[in-house]
Amino acid sequence: GPIITTQVTIPKDLAGSIIGKGGQRIKQIRHESGASIKIDEPLEGSEDRIITITGTQDQIQNAQYLLQNSVKQY
């Protein structure tokens, strides 16, 4: 399918649970989903961080599912 980009906003407090120790968790999510995932640095004074996910519809759905699971375990 076509490559698309979607953005998800997360509270910055949850960023740690998604990134994992030394970036292990986010690497695993990238690997498992096949999507490209970029977590922006939090904006000055903002409570949120923006996650940019790029890939096919399937890859993005996979990545979103894995991201949600990471947050739930936290």
Rank of each mutant, 00 (worst) to 15 (best):
I10E: 04
T6E: 14
I10Y: 13
I4N: 14
I51P: 01
K27Y: 09
I29P: 01
I3V: 03
Q24Y: 10
L14V: 12
H31F: 04
E32K: 05
H31E: 14
S33P: 00
L67E: 01
N62H: 15
T9V: 04
P2L: 11
Q7Y: 11
I53T: 01
P2D: 15
I10Q: 02
Q24E: 09
Y65L: 10
E47S: 05
R30K: 06
G55I: 00
V71F: 05
I18A: 13
T52C: 15
Q7C: 02
I50C: 13
Y74Q: 15
I29R: 01
K38M: 06
H31R: 10
K12T: 13
G34T: 02
I50E: 15
V8L: 04
D48V: 11
K27R: 12
I50S: 13
N69I: 14
P11L: 04
L14Y: 02
R30C: 12
A63R: 00
D40R: 04
S17C: 03
Y74R: 15
L14E: 11
I3G: 05
I3Y: 04
I37K: 00
S70N: 13
Q68F: 07
I51S: 02
S33C: 06
E44H: 14
Y74I: 09
A15N: 03
E47M: 12
N62L: 09
I51R: 00
P42Q: 09
I26M: 15
L43P: 04
I29D: 01
Q59I: 03
E44R: 10
Q28C: 12
I10T: 03
V8Y: 03
T52S: 15
G45K: 13
I26G: 06
D13I: 09
K27N: 12
R30G: 11
T9N: 02
H31K: 08
S33M: 01
G1K: 08
K72Y: 07
I3M: 14
Y74F: 15
T56D: 11
Q68S: 12
I3T: 15
R30M: 15
G34R: 07
I4A: 02
T52K: 12
Q59S: 12
E41C: 05
E32I: 06
P11Q: 06
Q57P: 06
R25S: 06
A15E: 05
H31V: 05
D48G: 09
R30P: 03
Y74A: 15
Y65R: 13
I53G: 00
S46K: 09
Q24F: 11
Q68W: 02
I26Q: 05
I4Y: 03
E32D: 08
Q61T: 14
S46W: 02
K72S: 12
Q61L: 04
V8T: 04
K21Q: 14
Q28F: 14
D48P: 04
I3R: 10
Q64W: 01
E47W: 04
Q28R: 13
T56K: 07
G1M: 05
P42T: 09
G34Y: 01
I26P: 03
Q73L: 06
K27H: 08
E32H: 03
E47H: 04
G34N: 06
I29H: 03
K27W: 05
E44T: 07
T56S: 10
K21I: 09
D48S: 09
S46F: 06
S70P: 14
T54N: 06
L14C: 11
L67I: 15
G34E: 05
Y74T: 15
Q57F: 03
V71M: 15
Q73A: 07
Q24M: 10
I19M: 13
G23D: 14
A35Y: 01
L14A: 13
D48C: 07
V8G: 02
Y74L: 15
I18H: 07
G16Y: 04
K72A: 14
D48Y: 05
I37T: 02
A15Q: 04
D40S: 06
I39F: 13
K38R: 11
E44L: 06
P42A: 06
S70G: 13
I50N: 10
G34W: 01
I10S: 03
E32V: 02
G55E: 00
T56N: 11
I18G: 04
Q68N: 15
G22S: 14
E41N: 10
G23Q: 06
Q61F: 04
T6G: 01
G22D: 07
D13Y: 08
G22I: 15
I18Q: 06
I4C: 06
I60G: 01
Q64D: 12
D13R: 07
Y74G: 15
D13L: 07
I18E: 06
I4V: 05
Q73Y: 13
R49V: 13
Q28Y: 01
D40G: 09
P42D: 06
G1E: 02
I10D: 00
I26K: 04
N69T: 06
Q64M: 02
E44M: 14
K12I: 13
P11C: 08
A63L: 01
P42L: 08
A15S: 05
Q64H: 02
G45R: 07
I29E: 01
D40N: 09
Y65N: 15
Q64G: 01
A15Y: 08
S46A: 09
D58T: 06
Q64N: 11
E47G: 10
N69S: 15
S36A: 10
K72N: 12
G34H: 07
E44I: 12
I29G: 02
T5K: 03
Q28S: 10
E47F: 05
I19C: 04
P42E: 08
D40H: 06
Q24P: 11
E32F: 01
S36Y: 05
S33T: 11
L43A: 11
G20M: 15
Q7T: 12
E44W: 03
G55T: 00
Q28P: 03
G16Q: 08
S46I: 06
I60S: 03
T6D: 06
Q28G: 12
K21A: 09
I19D: 04
K72C: 03
H31A: 09
E44Q: 08
I50R: 06
E47Q: 05
I50L: 12
G16A: 09
G22V: 05
I53A: 01
Q28L: 05
S36C: 06
R25D: 06
E32N: 11
L66I: 07
K21G: 14
D13T: 10
Y65P: 05
S46Q: 14
R30A: 14
V71E: 14
T9F: 01
Q61G: 09
I37P: 00
N69G: 14
S70M: 14
Q64K: 13
I60H: 02
I29N: 02
D48T: 10
